[in-house]
Amino acid sequence: MTRSSWPLYEVFVRGKRGLNHVHVGSLHAPDDEMALRNARDLYTRRNEGVSIWVVKADHITASSPDEKDPFFAPSGDKVYRHPTFYSIPEDVPHL
């Protein structure tokens, strides 16, 4: 049996004007154009969405949702990344 599977795309939909695009799920499509059309059919078939983004899943760069991933370990000891490291005189505005 042939195993020519289509790449995975992540789908983001803006439900109505004024809102951000929100991740709603994923789907498979042979290319970007078809991914957009498939997303329209699958995720907005009751007219929920006014705007759709699709992106190949392997084009997404992600960090982990919390600090249990080793990726975040360095930041724990890089105190200069934290705003409180810097003492700012009280009279400096808007900072």
Binding site: N38, D41, L42, R45
Partner: peptide
Amino acid sequence: PELEEDVALAN
């Protein structure tokens, strides 16, 4: 041929 297309044709 694929589930996504099933949904499209039904639409």
